[in-house]
């Protein structure tokens, strides 16, 4: 219970911190929402009136606390460029981005952990060299490139999905999921390769620890030592690596969303930053912060379950 409360507190702190940083960033970056709203024909007087209307002429902190006040009372504000409540615009994108990130994460976790262990236990085999090369190749391909290749192969040649025609969950769930699936794969490929590599190398160095050698020299089966002790210890850094990956996935989706035409949060975020649509950016950033803390908490909890020492440590 205490733990949960503490975590909730941390969540709150992070969200406030990131929203403040974002607000500050907009203060420093040049670009005025009133200018983007009124376009190239506006006169100085019109701009001034609009700034006043939007409260942009208020001091920085006043504006921030106003926003924060709105946030805590459930009022996320109105988008500048669309002139609609932010939540109406963001909610559908959030679902899509969640699907994309989670699917990608599941792919990463489900493929890379067994593959990493397998690749360790077969080290030295005739195909080991080939596997390493392949793994390295996967790591080196930027997702936008895979996105285009996939659209070509699976979209245009094999017609498994129709690039550029994301129908939305309401009208065609299966087709939407196919889009998201291919996006998730593009996102996952380099990360799978990285996780495999991460896992493999931690296992390798763990296997060379004295305790493992002792255990094996005492006649324990190499395999059971691997499964029982080594993996457990290697998992720690892999879990934090995966936690970090999960945290980054939502933001990283943008490029794939653009190429495959998936209307997710990443695209919306970049467009809103360009239009200086603060209310939208603030909301998305807070959602991202929530997500990051959640991923971090999950990783910590799993690690503590694996290695109770970490838990004792955090109490001291």
């Amino acid at each position: 219970m205490k733990y949960v409360l503490k975590r909730l507190g941390l969540l709150l702190v992070t969200m406030i911190l990131v929203s403040f940083l974002t607000f500050l960033a907009f203060q420093l970056v040049s670009g005025d929402p009133a200018v983007t709203m009124l376009g190239t024909d506006a006169t100085a007087a019109q701009l001034q009136t609009l700034r006043h209307e939007l409260g942009l002429d208020l001091p920085f902190l006043t504006r921030y606390f106003r926003w924060l006040g709105g946030f805590f009372t459930g009022n996320l504000g109105v988008s500048y460029s669309y002139r609609q409540p932010v939540w109406n615009l963001v909610s559908s994108k959030l679902t899509i981005s969640l699907c994309l990130s989670l699917m990608s994460f599941v792919l990463i976790a489900v493929i890379s952990i067994p593959a990493g262990i397998f690749s360790y236990s077969r080290t030295g085999g005739p195909l080991s060299w080939l596997r390493t090369v392949f793994n390295q190749l996967c790591m080196a391909v930027p997702p936008f490139f895979t996105g285009i290749l996939f659209s070509w192969c699976f979209g245009i040649l094999l017609k498994i999905f129709t690039p550029g025609d994301f129908p939305g969950f309401d009208s065609d769930f299966a087709e939407s999921m196919r889009h998201i699936f291919f996006g998730a794969v593009c996102l996952a490929i380099p990360r799978i390769a990285m996780t495999i590599r991460m896992l493999r190398s931690t296992v390798v160095s763990e296997m060379n620890k004295a305790y493992v050698r002792t255990a094996i020299s005492r006649g324990n089966d190499r395999r059971s030592v691997l499964m029982r002790h080594v993996l457990k210890n290697s998992m720690l850094s892999v879990v934090s690596f995966l936690g970090q990956t999960l945290a980054e996935l939502v933001g990283a989706g943008i490029v794939v969303e653009q190429v495959l035409g998936i209307p997710g949060l990443g695209r919306f975020l970049v467009a809103s930053i360009s239009h200086r649509d603060y209310p939208v950016v603030q909301t998305i950033v807070v959602i991202l912060a929530f997500w990051v803390v959640l991923a971090g908490t999950a990783a910590d909890l799993i690690n503590q379950a694996i290695d109770p020492r970490l838990r004792q440590g955090s109490r001291s």
Binding site: T14, V18, T22, Q244, I284, L288
Partner: peptide, 12 residues
Amino acid sequence: LNDALTAFPSFL
């Protein structure tokens, strides 16, 4: 701070 940085859009 670390979490805040992760959530902070790299584009921004």
